[in-house]
């Protein structure tokens, strides 16, 4: 028994990453970030508004939270719909109560189906992020590039037209990408995306079509990760977010501004027995004097401003995490 000799060959074993997407950079080595008004911790609440079609194909894999029973899986279909009819309105009340300025990541098919909901969001004026077409329109390794290009173009086109916003941000359905997704996003004038979870601060991600910013949206702190994937209790959800808040505030004392990102789903936390837990979290976090609530685009814009100032001040490190190297493009690029 033996394996092909390529199993003991390591063509990408060298300094930095094993791909050309971004430079190796430890968070501690970056310039300290200053948030407005001396704040230390940016609270970014992002709400995922999702449509899971009942005729789900589940190809090439089932998305997390996807339908799992034979057609027509009304059980899970309606549980997800609950979020868009009921849970979201509980969220909005909670946001207003605690002066949260969230972003909404929306499946484009959902705004076609529920224009009323989009009107409510437009009226509020919060930032809208594209969350792909719907939860069964996945991006995945090996996907045909023409198919994916059409999908991204269509998703963004619909959302931009109906929302009236530029829509600069992107979160892939189930946070899954193909090897071409970053190029295609830049091709469609997306400025930042939120699928990668390798950092607590924004950084530059290179594509054959130019750079895009990777925004840190924690998966470990997502409601559905803690409650559905890990089967932790609602009380533990509260503990975990509050502990994360305390830790990041303490770290920001000597390392500069940090971001606490909460990715939440109205079909999960919008249930009557859970909404109080979200409120408890928001109450705790917003009662910290050094916390500041803002949507992604605003956090990013202050981040850029802070970085350009530390650059002007003669900080030897470039903005975006020591990203001062020539860009290499990964083999996955088209």
């Amino acid at each position: 028994m033996s394996l092909n000799k390529k199993f003991l060959e390591y063509p990408r074993r060298g300094y930095g990453m094993d791909h050309g997407r971004y430079e190796w950079s430890m968070l501690i080595d970056r310039p300290k970030v200053a948030w407005p008004s001396g704040k230390k911790l940016a609270l970014w609440v992002n709400v995922c508004l999702q449509f899971f079609p009942v005729n789900q194909k589940g190809k090439p894999f089932l998305p997390s939270g996807g339908l799992s029973m034979p057609y027509p899986d009304l059980r899970h279909f309606t549980l997800r719909e609950y979020g868009n009819r009921v849970g979201i309105y509980r969220f909005l009340k909670a946001f207003d109560k605690y002066s949260i300025r969230p972003s909404f990541a929306i499946n484009s098919r959902l705004v076609q189906r529920y224009p009323y909901l989009l009107d409510v969001l437009k009226e509020r004026g919060d930032e809208i992020i594209c969350h792909g077409f719907h939860m069964d329109a996945l991006h995945y390794g090996g996907q045909d590039i023409h198919e994916e290009r059409d999908l991204i173009k269509r998703s963004l086109g619909i959302l931009r037209e109906l929302s009236g916003q530029d829509v600069n941000g992107w979160i892939s359905p189930d946070r899954s990408e193909s090897e071409n997704t970053p190029e295609l996003l830049v091709e469609n004038e997306v400025k930042y995306f939120c699928d990668w979870v390798n950092d607590d601060m924004p950084y530059l991600f290179s594509t054959a079509n130019g750079d895009i910013v990777a925004m840190p949206l924690s998966q470990e702190l997502e409601d559905k990760f803690i409650l559905m994937n890990n089967h932790h209790s609602e009380d533990s959800y509260v503990d975990q977010i509050c502990d994360a808040c305390d830790f990041l505030l303490a770290e920001s004392e000597d390392q500069g501004g940090r971001i606490l990102s909460l990715n939440i789903h109205p079909w999960m936390l919008g249930q009557p027995h859970r909404i109080g837990k979200l409120e408890q979290v928001l109450e705790y976090v917003t009662s910290q004097p050094a916390v500041w609530s803002a949507p992604a685009n605003e956090i990013l814009s202050y981040f850029k401003e802070s970085n350009s100032q530390s650059h002007e001040l003669g900080d030897s490190k470039e903005s975006y995490g020591g990203y001062a190297y020539p860009i290499k493009v990964g083999k996955g690029s088209p």
Partner: peptide, 14 residues
């Protein structure tokens, strides 16, 4: 999942 396994790879890089 097929490469790139974005969440698995990137959390380890974290």
């Amino acid at each position: 999942r097929p490469s790139p396994a974005v969440s698995g790879y990137s959390i380890r890089d974290y």
